[in-house]
Amino acid sequence: MTDNSIRSTGSEAKTGTDLTLRGLKTFVAVEETRTIGGAAERIGSSPSSVSQQITALEQAVGAKLFDRRGRPITLTPAGQVLRRHAHKILETVAEAQTELAELNLTALPKLNLSIIDDFDVSLTPALVSRLQAQFRNCFVSASSGRSDVMVQELVSRRSDIAIAAILPDDTSAYWVTPLLRENYFMICAKGVIDPDQEILPQLSALPCVQFSEETHAGHQITQHLRRVRFTPPRRFAFDASRSVYASVVQSGGWALTSPLNMLDAERFAPYIDVHQMPFPALSRRIWLIARSDELGRLPERLATDCRRIINRQTISRIVEIAPQLVNAIEVLHE
């Protein structure tokens, strides 16, 4: 069945007009938004093109589909009949497209992943291994870096799937699902904070090690500190978690960080103390992002694999390193 191969009968024989998938999608958009302008915006078309598609459909079925005299516009009896069939047809076509896409994936020659560097140890190797087992003839490439860079690789089509803490500016062309939420906490060099004394005056006297504001975490933390009106002097900032943790240890300072950051820099765990946030709570989400309708159900299956790996390996390792963080990370489902 192609876009122009659904033919009507009866009155269509007189007009020679076809029922098309494009026409049915336009019909459903108008039926759901109840306005020509709303339908045009939804499907990325113009109001005049939407009107032409509806007119062509009406010629094909030989009856008016909408009563356009009122606002919002409503379905006629013929439109109500077509509504039932249009939804069924479009659902069937979507299922067929997904199955065909999955069939084609068996011969996928290459899959490019962009994954934030916080997952370098805990997620990326296990995920790549699983993909190579599923697609034996597929070359799997995984790049690592900051969230903004990973998302840009996806937007510029240098990667097929991204895992990041931020989303593209326009998500309409992407399939997006959350993987986890993690709460920020505070680390400090071992022994420099007395938990029995008031925390904030002690922090004011210690070096604050910050993530670069070019990173999502750095921007998020800086904005949060401004909101709570605690703005330590900026002395140095780093992109990488390992550099932040190393500097905390060497300078005898403190930093706000996340469980995934801790996992990425676990070699420094013996030299730091973990504390709850001395400020109002702050958290971030990690998302899996893929372009819509290009990889069938692979992104959905990949998200399921990610959640399983995070549950079984990532969280358990974080809690091993710092038992205080047992409730600081949560796997999310769509």
Rank of each mutant, 00 (worst) to 15 (best):
L75R: 08
K190C: 07
E334T: 15
H216F: 15
Q197I: 07
R157W: 12
V274Q: 00
R317I: 07
T257S: 06
T76R: 02
A63D: 12
G16W: 11
V209S: 03
V149I: 12
P278G: 11
Q324M: 14
T9H: 11
L154G: 06
Q80K: 14
N261L: 01
P233H: 07
R136Y: 03
E58I: 04
L123K: 03
F279H: 04
P323A: 13
I89V: 12
V81C: 03
P280H: 06
S241D: 10
D120C: 15
K64R: 14
V121M: 10
R83G: 08
D118C: 12
V28T: 14
I318P: 04
R69N: 15
A29D: 00
R235N: 11
L332R: 07
I193Y: 05
A13E: 05
S316E: 09
E214F: 07
Q276M: 10
P280T: 05
F119P: 00
V228I: 14
A101K: 02
L21H: 13
D160E: 14
D18Q: 10
I166W: 00
D196R: 08
L123W: 01
E182Q: 15
S46W: 00
D239S: 11
N137E: 13
A107C: 08
R307Y: 07
E99A: 14
N137W: 02
S172K: 09
I318Y: 00
A142L: 03
S114V: 04
L263H: 09
H85L: 14
D196W: 06
F27V: 01
L179C: 08
V244W: 02
A328T: 03
D120V: 14
S51T: 10
M186E: 02
D118F: 08
M1W: 08
N327T: 10
T92Y: 07
L332W: 02
S159I: 06
H275D: 05
R68K: 14
T92V: 12
I115T: 02
A78E: 04
A162K: 00
R34I: 06
R285I: 04
Q80G: 14
L82T: 04
Q59M: 07
V176E: 03
W254E: 05
